[in-house]
Design a protein around this nucleic acid. Structure first.
Lengths: 152, 152
DNA sequence: ACAAAAATGTAGCACAGGCTAATATTGGCG
DNA sequence: CGCCAATATTAGCCTGTGCTACATTTTTGT
C-alpha cells in the first residue's frame, strides 16, 4: 500500500479485505435518499414542536429550496409512509415518520454533543454534526456516548 | 426548544441562529456531487498506485456500479478538469485531480485514525470513515488530529 | 365581504447518477 | 492471421432533486 504510515499491518489487511468485498461504498452510495428523508422528518418534527404545525414554506425556508421541490419531496415521503398530507393542509408525521424523526434527532444531538466534548467550536459542531450524523454507525455512536460520559 | 437537555443556553442560541441564517443545510445539500468527485479521484489515485493504471472496470468494481455509469461519471470529472481520458485508454488524473485526491486521502486517513484512536473497531472505523470524511471541516480535522496525538 | 398576500399546486425543464441492451474496439493467443 | 475475451461506447430508459412560470386556494386585514 502507500501512505498508511501510522497504521498497523492488521488494519491494512482489513482495508484490503473491505476493498475486496466492495461492501463499503455500496452503502455510502445509495443512502442519499435516506439522508434526505431523515433530514425532512427531523425538520418536520422540530417545526411542529416549535410552531404547532409544519407547512411546506417552513421546509422550503429551512432547506433553502423552492416550495415546489419541497412539495415533491414531501410527496415521496408520503408515498414511502413517513408523512400524511392533504392539499393545502399542514404536513403531519405518521407513526413511522415520528419514530424516524426521534431516532434522527437523538443521533444528531449525540454527534453534536460529542463534537463539543471533543473541543470543536459551537458553530463548527453545529455544521459538522449535520453532515456527519447520517454516516455514524451504532457502534461509533456508542463509543461517542462513552466519550461524552467520560468527559463529564 | 425541546430535547436539548444537556446543552447550554448559549449553544441553543447558536442553533437558533444557524437555523435562522439557513446556512447549514445549503452546504450539506449540494455537496453530493463533490463527494462523488472526491471518492472517484481518491479511488483513481489508489488504483493507479496499486495497479499502475486505472481502467473504468476497476472503478465499476470498486463502487459496485455498472461500467456505463463509471464512464459517464468520468466524463463529468473530465469536463470539470479532474481527469483526462481518451477513448479506450486508461484514466489519468490532472494536477488538480491529483491534489484533490491527495487531500481526500489524507483527510480520509485522519478520520480513520481518529475513529480507531477513539476505540471503534477496525471494520466499523473503515466503513464510517468513508461516510464521514466528506463532512468534516478543517477545524474538526485539527481537533481530531490533536486527539490522536494526545492518545499516543 | 372582498381584495391582497401568502401558501399550494401544476406544467415543464435540467442535470446527476443509476440501469440494460446492443455495438465497437483492443489486445492477446492459438 | 484471425478470433475471443475484456474493455469501452452509444442509445435509451428511470428516479431523484433542483428550478421557473403560472394557476389556484386559503388566509388575513380593513
Amino acid at each position: 500500500m502507500h501512505k498508511l504510515s501510522g497504521i498497523s499491518t492488521k488494519l491494512q489487511q482489513d482495508i484490503k479485505l473491505a476493498a475486496t468485498k466492495q461492501n463499503q461504498h455500496k452503502r455510502t452510495r445509495s443512502d442519499h435518499a435516506t439522508e434526505l428523508t431523515e433530514d425532512y422528518v427531523e425538520a418536520i418534527s422540530e417545526i411542529i414542536a416549535d410552531a404547532g404545525v409544519c407547512r411546506a414554506v417552513d421546509l422550503a425556508q429551512k432547506f433553502q429550496v423552492s416550495h415546489v421541490t419541497v412539495n415533491r419531496t414531501v410527496g415521496r415521503l408520503q408515498r414511502d409512509g413517513y408523512v400524511t398530507t392533504e392539499p393545502y393542509a399542514p404536513i403531519e408525521l405518521t407513526s413511522v415518520g415520528t419514530r424516524l424523526a426521534k431516532a434522527s434527532q437523538e443521533r444528531h444531538q449525540l454527534v453534536l454533543e460529542f463534537l463539543l466534548a471533543l473541543g470543536v467550536s459551537n458553530a463548527t459542531a453545529i455544521t459538522d454534526s449535520e453532515g456527519i450524523e447520517h454516516h455514524v454507525s451504532p457502534e461509533t455512536l456508542r463509543v461517542m456516548q462513552k466519550f461524552i460520559d467520560s468527559q463529564k
